[in-house]
Design a protein around this nucleic acid. Structure first.
Length: 568
RNA sequence: UGGGGGAUCGUCUAGGGGCAAGACAACAGAUUUUGGAUCUGUGAACCCAGGUUCGAUUCCUGGUCCCCCAGCCA
């Protein structure tokens, strides 16, 4: 016997609980995640996944199926099926042995269609698509019956079998439900149930010449799988009457309850399949796995941990109101997860050479550094230190503003895990005046962990030893769009014109700690004081490429806006 | 000008005839060998108008605004 979860419930869980209490579905809870294999999953799908698998997991005996809604062979392919399965698995959901396809049910759908014809509830219409549209009426005017609406059952049966046999051209006929051409709900004005398609289907090949529409296939798929709660997004709200009509007319033994909830929108991005496809096809991004995209492949490559995505989806809740979630909430969960898990490392993105004039020449020394101050069990590592180092260009300022605690002429700063140094000389390019190198002195008594280390300085700065550092390319990402809601720009501009021209910044010649030498693709790190980074797919044996997943919170950027060279 | 939905802090989400709660964001402070993390605190909301009621954000009535629907897409 299923038991409802305790605690705060969203409206869907409340309905499921109530259905359990009233024995609506014999105590069962079955949901499904029903993607169409015509594109890649995005974080909006992750919300749906969390709702469907989440609810199934919370109620005893609950099950969630993965079901591919593959009723349109012209748009679908098995590559998408595999991509979707991979993404669902990556997020951590397990459909066990319940991966289904609507196409598995084609024969049964056909039989239901025949039964509808026999009952006089469906007919073959031979109007063109244009004429059907003209007969449909408008939002305020009723439609008109098709002249073919009164065909006899026998003729409908004969025509439908010829449709199935492939005797007609695409568009020559369709099978329509016979409901009500005057209905105020346009979905009920004799909706199309079957259309002729000559495209090969990715699973059934050329076996079928006719394919069911979503409105016919979806309720029947749910019924056949014993789905109790068919959860979908708001735009299907007025399809529910049709959903129920199909189930009422088709003599199935399970009548699922369709419940609609608001889809996920995120600030500074777009989520519609159409817009995402356009961004990829028009080359605004490098592909479906571009780290700036909200696709699951993009987020994965960017380095977003799946657990953070799930926790985000659980946190935002489920409701019916249209909303746009602040992407910073997602980033919060990414930081929270990575703060706990990611090993720390030092990396200099924009290197500035520093020579410690009083430090002995030679191999230098090795200094211990903790891997994660949040988690002592992650241990420590040795970091090479020597006479010539790199620090971040941003960590030196010729003419420091108030409250600038980093290095400046004559000032002191601590090198993380090492010594306090003082800037003695600024070496410039004679021609350009550009700072090429700093000459500093170090205080040997201030080594981290030693007695002299108790001396306080205002700032601590990260560094790498020039002779020991690895070179890397680092990619910094900013929002893909310049406005929070590119779907609804207040000035009415089209989303393409709102793309952020600076959403990708590639830094070459970055210097990173040796600890990254053999880091596998996908490994995540915190580069101290900068952010969380992930080893990109583009990395090769010789060239390390890092993606910045998300920057650390930067309180200096708030104190001195515009002072920091880094975006975000 | 048909039908279906929805309006609660800046953004999400709860609640519900009796002090409107949480998270993110913001702000202030403490702390810190990451200007990170952590901790403490502050500001911040019931679409409008009537009605019922001792009392309405909640119930009723009437508005206003927003979203979706006229595919042989899903």
């Amino acid at each position: 016997m299923a038991k409802p979860p305790q605690g705060q419930q969203d409206f869907i869980r409340a309905i499921v609980s109530r259905d359990l209490d009233t024995h609506q579905f014999g105590g069962a809870v079955r949901t499904r995640f029903p993607p169409e294999p015509n594109g890649h999953l995005h974080i909006g799908h992750a919300k749906s996944l969390c709702v469907n698998f989440g609810i199934a997991g919370e109620f005893a005996g609950g099950r969630c199926n993965l079901r591919f809604d593959d009723t349109n062979p012209a748009k679908e392919s098995s590559e998408y099926v595999e991509s979707i399965r991979e993404d669902v698995r990556w997020l951590g959901f397990d459909w066990e042995d319940r991966c289904f396809f609507a196409s598995d049910y084609f024969e049964r759908f056909h039989d239901y269609a025949v039964s509808l014809i026999k009952k006089g509830r469906a007919y073959v219409d031979s109007l063109s698509a244009d004429d059907i549209r003209r007969h449909r009426g408008t939002l305020t005017e009723p439609g008109r019956d098709s002249p073919y609406r009164t065909r006899s059952v026998e003729e409908n049966l004969r025509l439908f079998s010829h449709m199935r046999a492939g005797d007609f051209e695409e568009g020559a006929h369709v099978l329509r439900a016979k409901i009500d051409m005057a209905s105020s709900n346009i979905n009920l004005r004799d909706p199309t149930l079957y259309r002729i398609r000559r495209a090969p289907h990715h699973r059934t090949g050329a076996a079928w010449a006719i394919y069911p529409t979503y409105d016919f296939a979806h309720p029947l798929s749910d019924a056949l799988e014993g789905i109790t709660h068919s959860l979908c997004t708001l735009e299907f709200e007025d399809h529910r009457a049709l959903y129920d009509w199909v189930l009422d007319e088709c003599a199935v033994d399970c009548h699922s309850r369709q419940i609609e909830f608001a889809r996920l929108n995120l600030t500074y991005t777009v989520m519609s399949k159409r817009k995402l496809t356009a961004l990829v096809d028009e080359g605004h991004v490098s592909g479906w796995n571009d780290p700036r995209l909200p696709t699951l492949r993009g987020l994965r490559r960017r380095g977003y941990p799946p657990d953070a995505i799930r926790r985000f989806c659980e946190h935002i809740g489920v409701a019916k109101r249209d909303s746009v979630i602040d992407v910073r909430l997602l980033e919060h969960f990414v930081r929270e997860e990575l703060n706990a898990r990611a090993p720390r490392v030092m990396a200099v993105l924009r290197p500035l050479r520093v020579v410690l004039t009083n430090y002995p020449d030679g191999d230098g020394e090795e200094l211990p550094a903790v891997n994660n101050p949040e988690d002592p069990s992650m241990g420590a590592r040795m970091v090479p230190f020597s006479r010539v180092l790199y620090i971040e260009r941003d960590d030196f300022c010729d003419d420091p503003p108030p409250r600038y605690f980093r290095l400046a002429p004559g000032r002191e700063v601590r090198l993380r895990y090492a010594y306090i140094i003082r800037c003695a000389d600024v070496i410039r390019d004679e021609r350009t005046g550009e700072i090429v190198e700093l000459h500093c002195t170090y205080d040997p008594d201030t080594k981290s962990g030693s007695g002299g280390a108790v001396r306080k300085v205002k700032g601590t700065v990260h560094w790498v030893s020039a002779a020991h550092a690895l070179e890397a390319e680092v990619r910094l990402f900013d929002h893909l769009f310049t406005v929070p809601d590119p779907d609804h720009d207040p000035e009415g501009r089209e989303y393409r014109s709102l793309l952020n021209p600076n959403s990708l910044e590639r830094l070459r010649g970055c210097r990173v700690e040796q600890a990254l030498r053999d880091a596998a693709v996908g490994r995540r790190f915190q580069c101290e004081r900068q952010g969380y980074f992930c080893v990109d797919d583009d990395s090769t044996g010789g060239q390390l490429v890092l993606n910045r997943i998300v920057a650390l919170r930067d309180s200096w950027a708030k104190i001195a806006p515009g002072r920091s060279q880094e975006t975000r």
